[in-house]
Design a binder for these strands. Sequence first.
RNA 1: GUGGCUGUAGCUCAGUCGGUUAGAGCAUCGGAUUGUGGUUCCGAGGGUCGCGGGUUCGAUUCCCGUCAGCCACCCCA
Length: 454
Amino acid sequence: MSSSALPGFRDFYPDELARRAHVFRAWRAVAHRYAFVEYDGPPLEPLDLYTKKSGDEIVGQLYNFTDKGKRDVALRPEMTPTFARMVAARANALRKPVRWFSIPQLFRYERAQRGRLREHFQLNVDIVGEESEVADAELLAVAIDIMRELGLTARDVRARVSDRRMLNGILLTLGVAEAQVPAVYGVMDKVARQPREASVAKLGEAGLAPALVERVLRLASGVTFAALQAEFGEAPAAREPIERVARYLDHLAALGVGDWVELDLSIVRGLAYYTGIVFELFDAKGELRAICGGGRYDTLLRAFGNADLPALGFGMGDVVLGELLTERGLWPADAQEPVDFHLVAGNGAGQRPYADALRLVAALRGAGFSVNHAMSGERYLSQATRNQVDGARKAGATSAIYFREDGAVEAVSLLGKMTGAATHSLPADAAIRGDQAVLDSLREWLHQQRDSAR
RNA sequence: GUGGCUGUAGCUCAGUCGGUUAGAGCAUCGGAUUGUGGUUCCGAGGGUCGCGGGUUCGAUUCCCGUCAGCCACCCCA
C-alpha cells in the first residue's frame, strides 16, 4: 500500500507482462500478415502538435510541462499527429500506399475508471495514399483478424460501420441544412447513451422540424443497408456514397469478415478529422467500451504540411481488449515461457566439484537451452531432492536435470501425470564439454516430451 | 472537473454492538532419515485495519477531512 503506481498507471508483474506480450504478439502477427511495417516516434512531443489541431481545451487532458530548454512539451495522448508529421515530412519519398503500424504507449490526464486509464498501449494501423474503399475494407479486416487471432468470434465482437459522406448525403436529402449537420452528428453519436427526449430537444434546438427529428432518430436507431439503398439510392446527394458503401461491404465479405460487420449510422466518431468511412469494434454484449475505432481522414495530412494525401487508420487499446479476453477466458494458460531445464542434486552430485554443476548449466545454455538452478551450492547439496524437483516444477521448468551416481547426467520430464516419468541420460563429461551430438539428443528428447504433453 | 459506493496480509475475504497480543484460505519461505512429482503433514515470515484529525479512559470499529479504487456523468484514445 505504501508504494504503488500513480493513479491510472499500471505495474506489469510477470504474469501481466506475459498477457501484454500475448496481445502484442497477436497485433504484430496480424499486422505483418497484412504486410504492414512497424514504426515508432518520440513519446514526448511539442505541445503545439496537439493544440494546433484540437485547440487549447485539450491541454486539460495532457501530461504537459515546460522542459529545461523552456520548450512546452507533452506526453503523446494519441499517435496520429506524430504519424501525420512523420509521413508529411517524407511524403514525396515514401512509396505509396504507405502501410505502417505502431504500438505506442499513450498518456492522458483524466479520471481513471474501468477500461480507461491514464496510460495505455494502443495499436495504430494506418494507410496513406489510397483513395479506394478497398483500403477501408483492408483496414477493418486487419482489426477483425486480430480478434480472430486472439480467439474471439463474430458472436463476441461486432464491427459497426458508417460513412460520413453517406450520412451527410442522406441528411441533405431529408432536408437538413448544411449548417445543422454538425449538431445532428452530435446527437446521433449519443443516441444510444442519452434519453430520447434529450435527443429530440437538441435536434429541435438545432432548428429541425418535428417530422424531420423523427426521421433522423429512426435512422440513428438502426436501419439496414438495404433499406437505405431503397430509400436514398437514387437521391443525387446520396447516390454516390451509397454505392461506395455497397462496394465496401462487398469487399469486406470477399476478405472473409462480412459476418462481423453491420451498418450503424450512429457511429460518427468523436474526432473531428474523420471524413469518410468510419467504424468501431464493440463487444457483442455491449458491456465494455469500444475495443477499437477508426476511419478515413483524407484532409489531415494537409494540415501537417504540404502533403495532400488520402489516409485512413484505426487505434486499438490494450485495456478494453484485455478485459474482454478476461471475460471470455481467452488468456493462454501458461503465461510464462517455460524454462527448459532446472538443475537439481542427484546421487552423483556429491562426487563432483560444485563447479561441474555450473559447467553443466553453462554447457546447456551454450547449446541454446534455458536453464535455472539454485544459485547456492549449500542448498543444492543439502535440500531434499524431492523439494528441489518440486521447486523446479513450480518454477516452470520442463525438465529437471541432475548427476547420477554412475557418471551420467539424467534429465527427467516434469510434464504429464505419469508416475513413470520419461528420462534421458547422457555421459556427464561429454555434456559438460558441450559435445554437440550429446546435446542434440537431449534437444530431441525435450521436444518429444513437449509434443507428447500436448 | 461533478456526484454515489467502497477501503482489514501479495490475493480472496472473516472479525471487532468501541475493550488484552486482529484471523482464515491461497501464495511465499523452511522442514518431514537426500532419486520422481501436482497430494499430505509440521513450522515460519508477512498488517501503524488507506492516511490525517475529532469524540472517548480507550478507535481498526463512531464522526469529519483527505487519498485511492469502483460506478455514473463529462470527454474521448
